[in-house]
Computed example of a mutant assay.
Amino acid sequence: MPAGHLKFGQAGEDYAAKYLDSHGLKVLDRNWRWRQWELDLVCMDGDELVFVEVKSRSGSGMQSGIEALTPAKCKKLVKAASHYLSEKNLWERPCRFDLVAITGNSNSMKLEHIKSAFEFSDFMGGGNTAWQPW
């Protein structure tokens, strides 16, 4: 990936973190990794743990940030989140997955925050159970 895209992606994550903080969410972790999986932002919203995927797009591409949250990406996020919960011993904590889609450029960014962008059961064949897979 060209360095300019990485720089814009980092700027997008910084912008998302500031936005979420200004809307009452506390950022606990950024770019948390376990093997090949990554969580962009992990936040607290009251007593709820929020896994936030940040998708930054320049607007010139064909796929929007929202469209980039594919079922395959959601499965990876669920896998990463389950390892995060195990590492931090937080399985009892209520959780959700949010998406922050950013379009624009380094000088002008538009942000869209989608709370509960997907449900665990949508991607793990769960039915009517809580999102935690136990």
Rank of each mutant, 00 (worst) to 15 (best):
I114M: 11
K75M: 05
D14K: 09
Q63F: 15
M109F: 02
Q10N: 13
R96S: 11
N89T: 14
L85F: 07
M62E: 10
H23D: 01
A117D: 03
K55Y: 10
E38Q: 13
K73R: 12
S64G: 08
L77V: 02
G46R: 03
T103F: 00
A11C: 11
A72Q: 15
Q36R: 12
F8Q: 13
A11F: 12
L20A: 07
H23W: 03
A68L: 02
L77Y: 10
A11E: 12
A17F: 10
M1S: 02
S82E: 05
H113S: 08
M44C: 01
L99E: 08
A17H: 07
L6E: 15
A117H: 08
L99F: 03
E13K: 04
Y84H: 01
S64P: 01
M1F: 05
Q36N: 13
K88V: 01
H23Q: 12
G46W: 06
A81C: 02
R35A: 14
V54Q: 04
E87I: 04
E13P: 00
W34H: 07
M44F: 07
G46S: 11
L39F: 00
F51T: 03
E38A: 10
I114D: 04
M109R: 13
M62S: 10
V78H: 02
S60I: 15
V42N: 00
N107M: 11
K110N: 15
K7M: 12
A81M: 05
Q10D: 14
S58K: 07
E13W: 04
P71F: 13
R96Q: 11
K75V: 14
H23A: 09
N105L: 09
A16P: 07
A16V: 09
A3P: 12
G46T: 06
V27H: 02
P2G: 15
N107Y: 11
H5F: 11
Y19L: 15
T103Q: 12
G59F: 03
L49I: 05
V42K: 01
S116K: 14
K115I: 14
K26D: 03
S60P: 00
R57L: 02
W37S: 08
A80W: 01
L85V: 01
F118Q: 04
L90P: 01
A3R: 10
N107D: 11
S86D: 13
G59A: 06
A3F: 14
E67G: 00
C95R: 11
W91P: 01
K110C: 04
G24A: 10
R57K: 15
H5P: 00
N89Q: 14
E48D: 10
K55W: 02
G104H: 04
A72E: 15
A11Y: 08
K55T: 09
E119Q: 10
V52K: 03
F8E: 14
S108A: 12
G24T: 07
W34G: 01
A117M: 09
A117P: 00
F97E: 03
M44T: 09
L85Y: 06
E87G: 09
S22F: 08
E112M: 11
Y19W: 11
T103W: 09
R57W: 00
H5K: 15
L111G: 03
F51Q: 02
N89V: 09
L20I: 06
C43Q: 09
H113M: 02
F118N: 07
L41N: 04
I66L: 07
A80I: 06
A80H: 09
G61V: 14
